[in-house]
Design a protein around this nucleic acid. Sequence first.
RNA 1: GGGCUCGUAGCUCAGUUGGUUAGAGCACACCCCUGAUAAGGGUGAGGUCACAGGUUCGAGUCUUGUCGGGCCCA
Length: 932
Amino acid sequence: MDLRSTLQLPDAESTIPMKANLPTLEPSILAIWEERGLYAQILESRVGAPSYVLHDGPPYTNSPIHLGTALNKILKDFTVKSRTMMGFRAPYVPGFDSHGLPIELAVTKKLAAKKETVTGSALRTACREHAYEYIKIQSEQFERLGVLGLWKHPYATLDYTYEAELVRTFKKLVEGGHIYKGLRPTLWSPTSQTALADTEIVYHDHVSTSIYVRFALRHDPNQIFSEFPNLYTIIWTTTPWTIPSNLAVAFHPQLDYAIVKVGEDHYLIVSALVERIAEKLGWTDFEVVATREGINFDHMTFSHPIFDRNSLAVMAEYVTTEDGTGVVHTAPSHGRDDFYTGQKYGLPVPNTVDGKGVLTSEAGEFAGTYYKDCDTVVVDRLKEVGALLKSEPYHHTYPYAERDGKPVIFRATEQWFLSIDPIREQMLEEIQGVQWVPPVGQNRIEAMVRNRPDWCISRQRPWGVGIPVFYGKESRVPVLDPEAIEAVARLVEARGSDAWFEVDAKDILPEGYVHPETGETEFEKETDTLDVWFDSGSSSLVTLDSQVTPEWKTQGLHWPADVYFEGSDQHRGWFNTSLILGTAIKGAAPYRTVVTHGFVTDSEGRKMSKSLGNVIEPMGAANQYGADILRYWVASVDYQSDVPCSDALLKQIGDSYRNVRNTLRFLLSSAAGYDATSEGPMSEGSWADLDEWVREQADLLAADCVQKYDAFDFGGVINAIHNFCREELSKFYLDAIKDRMYCDGVNWPSRRSGQATCLYVLNQLLTLVAPILAFTAEETWMKMRDLGLHASESSIHTERFRSPSPERMQEIEGSQLQARFESLRGLRDTVNAAFEQYKGTDGIKNSQDAIVRLTLPADTFGVMSSFSISDLANYFRVSWVELTLGEPAISFAPSTYPECARSRLRRPDVTSISIEREEFLLSDRDRQVLGV
RNA sequence: GGGCUCGUAGCUCAGUUGGUUAGAGCACACCCCUGAUAAGGGUGAGGUCACAGGUUCGAGUCUUGUCGGGCCCA
């Protein structure tokens, strides 16, 4: 008789395969999801439930995705999927950021390679095509990673509807009085007469005229220098042509400044450089007569060396003692630092240089002079008025325009601004009401908002949304009229922002439109475009508030979003611009919670770069290891700091994945064949306690994991799950029930209870792991359906977490089982360790061949006595157990019992029996099953 | 150069308000099983908590500095 055939051994057909083969499995699951319309199905299953809205920060559509983008999107997917399983309606409308310089440059380069030069609308068309191409590529890549969302109707900043809504956002800002036109220094090429971006600049060696100029003290309200007559401060600059624009001199508030007596004069310069400056200026007889900290000079005034006007003493942190005098010549029109410092002190920005590089009437006597010629004209004049202390050639690197190879200048140009001061306090207040995860994020954004200057929202670039402003043709007075802007919005809605550049003003404006201020009837259009941060900063308004795409209206979206989840660099970027626009237009922050993650590095903590050769490419990893491995990786690293990734790490992740997978596989094969409709499992005998205990464990795991999901602690979730698979299941529970599952009668209550319990635990585990291992969970769920373990036609991702109710939690807390099994497992560890010592003596290698004799103190003895001896033998994996009351001791002896031919256990009740004239050693239980 | 931030076993992570001998998992070594088998089980060896000072009866935890990463600026 073949005893093996009478066992209920695991059937490989009744479970998922051991080898996952994710790279081929995942695409097949994606096809099923696609066919079902899974995303829509999930949302439908939550109609009427409260919404939880994660608003997507749009990636820039200029390249395939990289690992950082993958990390970000997977974290968002964990969030959306887990909130869905908590019962929320969690829509996800993905976004794409598609205007701006990088695309323009990429397209220009691409066309240049084909020897084409394209401008105007042809360039915009090429940019549009380029952006849509990458929207398609990125969408496919994100979907491949298992990220579910409204991929058929994402928001993209270049869509006509989106562009039109940007125009309307601008309109609302105009209505609210947030927009003004002002001057700001821009990198400017006087030769090609265009504004340039930082990326269009190269640095070359250059010889400038450097000068030392003295500024006489003019007003000293606190009488700091009253005892030092003829006091001057000295500035050093390499751009003499900006002296006519000087409005301030900057000191470092914390540096010490010396008052140096030279003849009858006193000079105020930074202490650290006195010797160097003395040598440079040829002071032979000088004396430091006093020292003062820079902070004392705040708001004093000096005299401009040429013009009869103030040069304000201001404080600036960027002042150094590297070179110069520790006093920085400040011309807000001609430098970024100068401009921001000027803003802080309320200084104007004079328009002293025109587009051709010629000084204007605002430069007084220098009007009409080319800026370069000022290097001699201004120097001569300074010499004449006695302000020039020294002039010499100076070698350094200087910015040149890449396109024509000529030097560039900073020049004040007209720009559009969004003023921050009127909303700053409100923004700071809003920040208080937002939950920042981790909490340090709040400090970061607060510092940014507190210090940020007005937002310059205009760019002199072709690839963007045109700023919808008309000018009176003669007067050049801008039309800031909502009616006129709305006319633009309607045009853009129909034909895109491209139309703004192509259609004449008169064809956009209503018939007979008159300039509200000047009465003009002829108009010209603004040529500047909106900063791309304006595009993305408006996304919550466009997507969640206006919901300009019909498909969005059915999603259950709401403004503000429940959560933003982005890299920590976005404190300066998107979180900031979104907050500005949310506050300016809706009077509130656009998010309730902001979660940030770190950046991807290699396993040494270095950033990934081609030159270091440590780049992990996400799609390569998905196709080599599987998206679930990548997802497991995302869950297992601590995303709140920088996260490491390498091939070695992904391989290691694969090992952990396999353990979880095998546990699911074994649970499923154990549950397979269970028919819930036939007579239910009985609840008696200590095996029932074991089953109840593991159900309690699974419920505790569920409670723990759901709480962790709620706190965005995905690492905690996967760790708890993996630990549970390892400790509670593989090492203990699944091992302990094997005999029952394999050898007991198919429909014995003991076996059915085991099956029902495996199914229960499997359902718990599977729902808990589904947000992370999206594909594996689905694969298992589908197999369960094939095996009749559930009847759901839908996906695991429409399921809910099976969190224990408060009553159930109370029941578990009051349960004796937890303490009993904790004690049992503790003793089991002791027995295992002791057996390791005993192993080898008496020729015994396998614990199943030994009897363990345990002498236990009263409490433990009591607990162990509550289990049957045969179950204890099972738990300890030994032949038999002998319990005695007394001083703790443990010993082993070879088992004298014969081995049951069917169950392979050596038990006291194993005796010989003849079946079909063949002798078999069998235990009572096995005889019963066989009916002999 | 400045602001913020990170540095715990070979790897990925835990370590509550400072308090026994710093914990898991993976990998590794040895062993068992061969009825989860390209699986499973047992035991074990891995740590000057980046480094150097300080506060304290007591520091992985607090503090200062140094070194090395990262982000954002300059």
